[in-house]
Design a protein around this nucleic acid. Sequence first.
DNA 1: CGGGGCGTTGACTACGCTCAACGATAGTGG
DNA 2: CCACTATCGTTGAGCGTAGTCAACGCCCCG
Lengths: 241, 241
Amino acid sequence: MLTRSMAVPHVGPHAGIGFPNVKDLAFEAPEARALVALLKAQKPLSCKAKEVLFHEGDAADSVFLVASGMLCLYRFMPNGQRMIARFIFPHEIVGLAFDTDCSFTAACIEPTTVYKIARSSLNPLCAHSPVLQNDVVLMLKYELRTEHEDHLPMMHQNAEARVARLLRMLARRTSTDCRKGERIQLPMTRSDIADFLGLTIETVCRTFTRMKEEGLISAPTPDRIRVENVDALISLADGDE
Amino acid sequence: MLTRSMAVPHVGPHAGIGFPNVKDLAFEAPEARALVALLKAQKPLSCKAKEVLFHEGDAADSVFLVASGMLCLYRFMPNGQRMIARFIFPHEIVGLAFDTDCSFTAACIEPTTVYKIARSSLNPLCAHSPVLQNDVVLMLKYELRTEHEDHLPMMHQNAEARVARLLRMLARRTSTDCRKGERIQLPMTRSDIADFLGLTIETVCRTFTRMKEEGLISAPTPDRIRVENVDALISLADGDE
DNA sequence: CGGGGCGTTGACTACGCTCAACGATAGTGG
DNA sequence: CCACTATCGTTGAGCGTAGTCAACGCCCCG
């Protein structure tokens, strides 16, 4: 069953651009120029930390582009446990994938500015602009890809690998690189991290502690991580064993 | 933090059609009529069980519509563990979300027939047909929704809930209902199930055994499940506690 | 100064993994 | 036709990772 296992060492099309020898570190939001331009033509909206943009079940009547800051999309499971589906970073778009209702609640992790456009404005434009519609397709594909690359593998990984994966994700999308010495800002709480990774707060804490003991990372403050051993962190995230 | 938890008992737009009082049992592939019609105009392709349609890393040059049977999309993690990303059911489409390369391997779980169209044929048509392009958007949204509804919550659930979720998914998409007495066909092996749920074969087996002991299900043969207590199964799948 | 949210650590428990064995079935070749 | 083998499903014993419950320090804010 494992005969075919590592037959295809797949490397993304952007691999290597700006990230010399760190495999699979790079994939970026696609250039949906028309859609982004349209959104940036709207007037920006400033949101405070913890502010909610929309609630699960609300009518999905808007689409947002994050200009700065960070959002998270979450939902509560019937037992009351919160499940964070995604963090939304600058240049990313929320709301395109929703049907008639929002399937998640969107809240600001930190002070955030977004551009907002009504679906009632966007839809007719898309219907008559193949370019715009194509940008929508690009963004949906991007969402699916982040789901497949960031989230899916986690279900098969242990706590340490999940945390490593989150750190890589943050390095990839916020700062520029996660080479030795790069600092990673963690704007979210331990609780947010736990609800995103499917772990408990305590396990997240203990995992950070263990990673520090192992010399993988250091952390002057709880919300600032410094990666000390990139290669080890990357292979941990990939589940290299 | 839990104050808002169950504020919005969200029910999909199709809820209730054929599924009287079973919440959240129904969501179906969207009616992408133009796209489906285009695919069905191609000549059908018969595949044997275990046959591979494409490998991870192959050039993504085709799009497939499953007419009958079942596919699975998988990938191997660096440590050799296989990860099944999705099962593909009749009426569902594979290949739309890929970038230039296939990000998964597609294999037949059972004998399967598919319709296949080259991207080089499809893309130009989409570029000039808003209707077709809109169908692509619909299918991508559907993929995202199944990801969010089927997969995401599993990361936060235990073995029994994951298995229950799989059973509900199969009931929803293959047969018609999962009311008491309905039989669910399990064409995939325990190994497939394990690689999909992020568990081991042994845990999957033991979970089935426990569910039988608890009177939730019965199983005349390993690949045929009869649901004896729908409500309990559903709330298990939802993580109701 | 008190209270609440957040982060961390410890002790204990339990769920799922590992390793091992065994039965059943189906496909293969003597 | 019947061993022979491989694959699949199932069960048991023991272990380890992550969850639970609890306590405590820190910081910010009222």
